Simulated assay, not measured.
Amino acid sequence: MVKEIERAGIPVVHMCTVVPISLTVGANRIIPTVAIPYPLGNPALEASEEKTIRRKLVVSALKALETEVDGQTVFED
């Protein structure tokens, strides 16, 4: 679905825990996340720590959306 949305001219960020799968499906903007059961956080952490992780991932995704890419790009901080 990511590729079809991109074809329509809408930039998409694929946030995932397993980057090779995103590469296989053809996502252009890829953000690696935390872990398979909790890709955007870690419920074992204090709420403030988890919020920091989530904010970092969202900011990375927004930056990726603003970035012109030519083919598949993995955005890592």
Rank of each mutant, 00 (worst) to 15 (best):
S22E: 14
I36N: 00
V58G: 08
E6V: 12
A44E: 15
M15Y: 10
F75A: 06
L23Y: 07
T52K: 10
A61R: 02
A44H: 07
F75D: 08
L62Q: 06
A61S: 15
E6N: 01
A44N: 05
K51H: 12
I30L: 04
I10E: 08
I5P: 02
F75C: 04
V25H: 03
V2A: 02
A47K: 13
R7C: 00
I10M: 08
I5K: 01
I21N: 00
E49P: 01
I31C: 00
P32A: 05
L40V: 07
L40E: 02
I30H: 02
E50I: 04
I10W: 01
I31D: 04
F75E: 06
S60V: 00
A44D: 10
K56G: 05
G26V: 09
Y38G: 01
K63W: 11
L65C: 08
F75W: 13
V69H: 08
K51R: 11
I53R: 03
K56E: 14
E76D: 11
M15G: 15
P20E: 10
P43T: 08
M1W: 09
P11D: 10
L65N: 07
E4G: 01
E50W: 01
T17H: 06
T33W: 07
S22L: 03
M15W: 07
K63R: 11
T24H: 06
V34I: 12
H14L: 15
K63D: 15
N28K: 13
I21M: 09
I31W: 11
A64L: 05
D70T: 14
T17S: 06
A44W: 03
L45T: 02
V18A: 14
A27W: 04
K3V: 13
A27E: 10
P37E: 07
A44S: 07
P39A: 06
A44C: 01
V58Y: 13
E76T: 15
V12Y: 03
L40F: 11
G26F: 10
M1Q: 05
A61N: 06
R55Q: 12
R55F: 08
S48E: 10
I21C: 00
P37H: 02
N28H: 11
I21S: 00
T52S: 12
G26P: 02
A47S: 10
M15Q: 13
T17K: 04
V59S: 14
L40A: 11
A44K: 09
V59G: 08
V19S: 01
S60W: 12
G9H: 05
V18W: 15
A8R: 14
K63M: 13
I36R: 00
T24W: 06
A35H: 02
T52N: 06
Y38Q: 10
S48T: 05
A35F: 08
K56T: 14
I10R: 00
V74H: 03
G9N: 09
A8T: 04
T73A: 10
N28L: 08
R7F: 04
G71R: 10
V58T: 12
I21F: 08
N28A: 05
G41D: 10
K63V: 04
E6G: 03
V34A: 01
T33H: 05
L62Y: 11
F75R: 09
I31H: 01
G71V: 11
A44T: 09
E50N: 14
E49Y: 09
E68T: 04
Q72T: 13
A64S: 05
